[in-house]
Computed example of a mutant assay.
Amino acid sequence: MTPAIDGPRLPALNGQAKALCVFLHGYGADGNDLIAIGAEWRKAMPDVAFVSPHAPERCIASPSGRQWFPLTFRDPDERRRGVISARPALDAFLDAELARHQLPADRLVLVGFSQGAMMALHVGLRRPVAPAAILGFSGMLVSPEALKDEAKSKPPILLVHGERDDVIPVDALFAAMDGLGAAEIPVEWHLSPGLGHGIDGEGLRQGGHFLTSALKPRRTSLRSSSQA
């Protein structure tokens, strides 16, 4: 049975949401860790609803926190197995939240930190309908070699990483860019000078701008039927 997940929410400031932003927290945290970012962004995105679900499992390393999947840091394949096993619960949650707000699947943005960024990339790129955007902080792309066969969509992506990250070293950012590029998936990136494993003000500013731009209604060009 797919475990049900839930977490704190912020409704759209303008009432009826026209898009949904889902935060995916890191290993050992929970949904309360990132929902405050929604409170900061919502003034610039008043038509967006925000939700930050708690991952489905208790974290062995931090019993008061949660995990999307267990980590021993000894098994090189555990991340691959982990994102695959955690995907059904997250997909079900995303579908339910979109239905709650009566939104189409392309009005979804995923924002992940660390392990949550791994989930955002893994799940977002395999959704039948592309999310409007994926924003990953201090994460990594799990099994980039599988993307050519498994990716179903190519949403715009922004990856943000701390230059001095000692949990997920900055090399993971460049590896992710290479993997996404090889699969012909567009990606932007920002390196935060002097930052460790975290999110700084500039990363939040750039992330908010990226999502605001991604959620703007696309203009359709009209061809005039009149002849000179």
Rank of each mutant, 00 (worst) to 15 (best):
D149L: 09
I168R: 00
S138L: 07
D75H: 08
G136H: 06
A117L: 04
A105T: 03
F113P: 01
P104R: 14
P128G: 01
P155R: 10
L108R: 05
R87L: 07
D106L: 10
K154V: 13
G179E: 08
R81F: 14
D149C: 03
R164I: 03
I84L: 07
V83D: 04
E78W: 02
P144D: 05
A132D: 11
P169I: 13
P156M: 07
A146V: 04
L98Y: 10
G179C: 07
L158C: 06
E188I: 05
D77S: 12
L191A: 08
R107N: 11
S153P: 03
H161W: 01
V83H: 03
V170I: 15
L94C: 12
E150R: 03
P156W: 04
G136K: 02
H122S: 12
L180C: 05
K148P: 00
E150I: 04
P104D: 10
A86L: 08
A99V: 12
P169R: 12
S138T: 02
F93G: 14
P131G: 10
G116Y: 02
E163T: 13
Q115K: 04
A120D: 11
D165Q: 08
P155K: 06
L159C: 04
R126E: 03
V109H: 03
A89G: 11
E163H: 09
L147S: 04
V187Q: 00
F174S: 07
A146Q: 11
E150S: 04
D91A: 15
P155G: 13
R79L: 11
S138I: 02
D165S: 11
P88N: 13
M119W: 02
P104N: 13
K152F: 02
L173Q: 05
V129L: 04
M177G: 12
A117W: 02
I185L: 09
P156T: 05
G112I: 06
D171Y: 00
V170G: 11
L180I: 06
M118E: 01
F93H: 13
E163S: 10
L108D: 09
R81L: 15
L158F: 06
G124R: 08
A182E: 14
L108F: 09
A182D: 11
V111A: 14
V129C: 05
V123T: 15
L94S: 13
A105K: 12
S114H: 04
E188C: 08
E163G: 13
A86Q: 08
E150G: 00
R79Y: 12
